[in-house]
């Protein structure tokens, strides 16, 4: 069996389904959920290949300890564990590996049966290397979801059970005392969009054309860290080593130089377009189409052309 950790604060329903499909190619899947699933959720997880659903009342924004305890109760000595490679998912996974004395592998982009049990691949050193790692079956692995190849699932009809456990957090676990929700924002999610348009220092603080173009073509808006540091974009927009990793069909970097820390978050994009005034910018060595020019001119032209081609809605 392979136990799959779902419902983490910084994962998404779509990423959770990818995780289940990755796991289903390895072994029979038992999912750990943070609340009782409704019929649609049972059907969706079954279609992704889950055989069993175990749930407990576990708040996504609660401490990681109870999630660790629930997983520890779920897995037997020969079972594997798969968690999302997000901040929250990696924390649960690491604590579980320590508690159970199991090997840990963080950030896999594929997982298969082989070697002494499992073979995983991952990228390393700001995504400039590909590693292949072997580990025993009874290990804890975390996997990314952006850009991974998922095998076609074999649909199942999962059974649902509640975990009967005392999941009171230890007294020293941190507690959330306040939360300021963020506006969900229009358009697709950054990690799931087919097209991402990102702006950097070259925008000089004006993201309006980036937002307008992205809105017109149904793309998500991303940014470099400089744009976040300057307060032009909010932190969850940041692509790169300390931001999110994306793997869209097309990634458009406007006014971004192409630092290795930025590239780390978008190398998995199928096509990369760079718009930059400096013909020697490093981003031109890491793209498929390089447009040497002012991003404001290029994006204004693009917006005008798309509007012209578009049927007029009143």
């Amino acid at each position: 069996m392979i136990a799959v950790l779902l419902d983490q604060l910084d994962s998404t329903a779509e990423a959770d389904l990818i995780l289940v499909r990755l796991a289903a190619a390895v072994d029979e899947v038992t999912c750990l959920l943070g609340s009782a699933p409704d019929r649609d959720r049972v059907a969706a997880l079954g279609a992704a290949g889950a055989s069993h659903l175990a749930w407990a009342d576990l708040a996504p924004d609660g401490p990681s300890g109870p999630w660790v305890a629930a997983l520890a109760a779920l897995v037997g000595p020969d079972d594997a564990v798969l968690a999302p490679s997000t901040r929250a998912g990696n924390e649960v996974a690491a604590r579980l590996a320590l508690r159970l004395g199991r090997p840990l592998s963080v950030g896999a982009d594929s997982i298969a049966v082989g070697g002494p049990g499992l073979v995983v691949t991952s990228t390393a050193f700001t995504a400039t290397w590909h590693l292949t790692t072997e580990l025993p079956k009874a290990s804890v692995v975390t996997a990314v979801s952006a850009g991974v190849q998922v095998p076609p699932p074999t649909p199942r009809t999962p059974g649902v059970r509640r975990l009967e456990l005392d999941l009171t957090p230890a007294p020293h676990e941190p507690v959330v005392v306040a939360a300021a929700p963020k506006a969900a924002g229009a358009g697709p999610r950054l990690t799931e969009a087919a097209v991402v348009v990102s702006g950097g220092r070259g925008t000089d603080g004006d993201f309006s054309l980036i937002e307008e173009f992205a809105g017109l073509i149904g793309a998500a808006v991303g940014s470099s860290r400089v744009a976040v540091d300057q307060g032009w974009a909010s932190p969850e927009r940041q692509v790169g080593q300390t931001g999110v990793s994306v793997a869209p069909e097309v990634y458009i970097a406007a006014g971004i130089s192409g630092a290795v820390q930025h590239l780390a978050g978008m190398v998995a994009a199928k096509q990369v377009v760079a718009i930059n005034t400096d013909p020697d910018a490093p981003i031109f060595r890491a793209c498929d189409l390089g447009i040497v020019g002012d991003l404001h001119t290029v994006l204004a032209d693009a917006v005008a052309a798309v509007r012209k081609a578009q049927p007029v809605h009143c």
């Binding site: 090997p103 840990l104 592998s105 070697g115 002494p116 073979v119 990228t123 390393a124 995504a127 400039t128 290397w129 590909h130 590693l131 292949t132 790692t133 072997e134 580990l135 025993p136 290990s139 190398v267 990369v272 760079a274 718009i275 013909p279 031109f284 060595r285 890491a286 793209c287 498929d288 189409l289 390089g290 447009i291 040497v292 020019g293 002012d294 001119t297 290029v298 994006l299 032209d301 693009a302 005008a304 052309a305």
Partner: peptide, 28 residues
């Protein structure tokens, strides 16, 4: 024996890009 890295290869660079110098809307 826990985890064992069995291979490490450098990522292939992207093939050289098509470069367009923007003039009169050619970039867009």
């Amino acid at each position: 024996p826990g985890t064992r890295t069995v291979s490490a290869v450098e990522a292939d660079p992207r093939p050289p890009a098509r470069i367009v110098t923007d003039s009169d809307g050619s970039g867009a």
